[in-house]
Structure formats: structure tokens, C-alpha cells
């Protein structure tokens, strides 16, 4: 469930707005953030703890460039609805699978497979394909036009969508 945005005060919102993209990698980073926000280091830490507890912030930490940490690929497979659960379980058990979504389309299972390098990735996909018995649609990223996950949060608008 989404949180009620009214549970997030002005300081919470500024914390998210200012630091969802980047926080300082320096000595005493939370003190540096506090300086900019006009509050104390202890308050910044307490706020981040609360935002984590609420699930509004999923993690305070590094975002790694996965391209530099191995190989990965988006793949899809079209399986009969009756076999979808069993196929999803096979996909989930396959080594290196970190996302798996059911989608409303003839290609009804979508997942990302990762591996230390391209050769291992290819062999993992081949093995999974053989186990499933259905051909995989292999969709490597050829070009990334936008990989910044920051979305400006329209706080006022969000409040408008919440029942009073």
C-alpha cells in the first residue's frame, strides 16, 4: 500500500527531493546533508530511519553500475496459462534470475538473468530454455537512453489523490 503523503512533512520531502539522486560521499555525510537542510545530523539520521521503516526509501546506499559487475539480459517466454506457475518456479530457481514478472501478453513471463560474464549468461539461458521447453525471447540492451531512476515527486498532487 502507498503511504499517505500527509505522513511526510516538509523536511521528509526535502530529504527525498534533494537526495534521491545523490548524497555526498564525504566524511560525516549526514552532517553535510543536515547543514544543507538546516537541521541536525541526528535529525537527518532519524528521518532516514523512519523513511526506511515506512518503505518510502528502500535503501540509503550505493547504486552499482551493473554493466561493470557482470552480464545480464532481459528475457521473455510465452507459456500456456496452465503452466505459468510451474514455469515461473523453474525461472525463479534458475541461477542468476533476479526479477521475474507476469505480464499480460502472449509473452507472459518476463525476467532478468545475470551472470559473471557473457559466456556464462548464454549457457544459463540455454539451460533454462531447455528445461522450460519453450523458446526464450532474448532482449539485450543495445542502447540505454535514460537510466536515471529519479522522478520528481509532485507532493501537492499526491496529497490531492488521498481521501481526506
Amino acid at each position: 500500500m502507498p503511504v499517505d503523503p500527509r505522513d511526510l512533512d516538509a523536511l521528509d520531502r526535502r530529504l527525498i527531493d534533494c537526495y534521491q539522486r545523490r548524497l555526498p560521499v564525504c566524511i560525516r555525510p549526514f552532517a553535510r546533508m543536515a547543514e544543507r537542510l538546516g537541521t541536525s545530523e541526528a535529525e537527518v539520521i532519524a528521518r532516514l530511519e523512519r523513511l526506511l521503516a515506512l518503505g518510502v526509501v528502500s535503501r540509503v546506499g550505493p547504486v552499482f553500475d551493473h554493466a561493470r559487475a557482470g552480464a545480464s539480459l532481459l528475457a521473455a517466454v510465452s507459456v500456456p496459462d496452465a503452466e505459468r506457475e510451474a514455469c515461473a518456479a523453474i525461472v525463479n530457481r534458475a541461477p542468476g534470475v533476479n526479477h521475474n514478472y507476469a505480464r499480460d501478453h502472449a509473452y507472459n513471463l518476463w525476467f532478468v538473468m545475470t551472470a559473471p560474464d557473457e559466456a556464462v549468461l548464454a549457457s544459463r539461458l540455454d539451460r533454462l530454455e531447455a528445461t522450460l521447453g519453450y523458446p526464450l525471447l532474448r532482449l539485450p540492451m543495445l542502447e540505454g537512453y535514460h537510466i536515471d531512476l529519479a522522478i520528481p515527486i509532485p507532493w501537492a498532487e499526491l496529497e490531492g489523490t488521498c481521501p481526506p
Partner: peptide, 23 residues
């Protein structure tokens, strides 16, 4: 950490929001 950020291994350090929880 700073060196990994400079090399691009770390893209950024951030308070990563969960957009679903934000509506």
C-alpha cells in the same frame, strides 16, 4: 567508495525512493 564512484562502478550513492510507496 570515492574511487569506485569516479570509475563509474558506483553510479551514485543515494536515498533510493520506493515509488510504489509514494503512490
Amino acid at each position: 567508495m570515492q574511487a569506485m564512484a569516479a570509475r563509474g562502478v558506483i553510479r551514485r550513492v543515494a536515498a533510493v525512493p520506493n515509488h510504489y510507496r509514494l503512490g
